[in-house]
Amino acid sequence: MDAVISPNARHADASDVNIERTQKKRRSLGRRITLLMLLPSTLWFLLLLVMPLMIILVFSFGERSAVGGYAGGLTLANYLNLGSRAAAFSNTLVLAPLGTLVCLLAAYPLAYFLAVKTGKNRSLLLTLVIVPFWTSFLIRTYAWIFILSGKGIPALLASVGLDDVRLINTPYAVLIGIVYGYLPLMVFPIYVSLEKLDKRLLEASADLGASAFESLRRITLPLAAPGIITGVMLVFILLMGEFLIPAVLGGGKVFFVGNALVDLFLQSRNWPFGSALAMTLVTIMLLIIGVYLKLVARYGGKPGEGAL
């Protein structure tokens, strides 16, 4: 825009030119300040996000060098070899959606309770849901070792005659860990949506003879939809990259793609194959989210405000 000099400017007298000059100077100073403000974040994004992702994209087509690490090359071998980690993918693709679903089913009644049935102590109850989220994820996860290992629930069950129940290092343990870890993240956005619910709507619907189920379907659920959409997306995204829960509660028997990645990068040092695995994970995740958002949009929903 600065380069365009209006035809009048050429004929303008000296004072006009001066004004235009100072304006131009001010504008370019303003622009420089804007650039300066955006510089650190741009640098960070380029150096720590764009460049690293480009590098693993390139690596995923490369070959493993003899000592581990990366040797140049252009091959699809890594992608063709993905089948050797099929178990990790199938575990992730079963347990991540299932975990999200169980989280949703467990969280919805609590969010509804918080939004509709609580009065004065709502703020406290809400804080109590958030508190676990602010304490270390790792600590909260390993706490389940106490409960699920031999001296916990299995011992209790044995005392009522159910012997030999194994929980730790099974998919059930991982599922419990998932629900426990991500429940607050699901409750919160749903609560935020339901908070706006006008209770009189429910009363009116009951007065008009609607059953509880009808009210749920026609009033509460549509209102909760944005929160549900957000919660499901947040939990699902985090679950797709999960490593800790299967590592701590799955004991190497139930492993996610995340666990395969740790193995490939830190133990067997097969970077190109690991890169291909990572790229595939991200692609699958983006595809699922894309389809999910399309479906949601088709039914007229849209994600609500962020949680946290």
């Binding site: 994004f45 996000l49 460049m51 590098i55 690596f59 990259g241 990068f265 995740m285 989210i289």
Partner: peptide, 24 residues
């Protein structure tokens, strides 16, 4: 552009961020 980068940084699993920054 910044919106896209921000959402990328948030949506990409931490484990992939970890791996890619390690290699980079």
């Amino acid at each position: 552009l910044f919106d896209a980068l921000t959402y990328c940084a948030i949506i990409i699993p931490g484990i992939v961020i970890g791996i890619s920054t390690l290699i980079a």
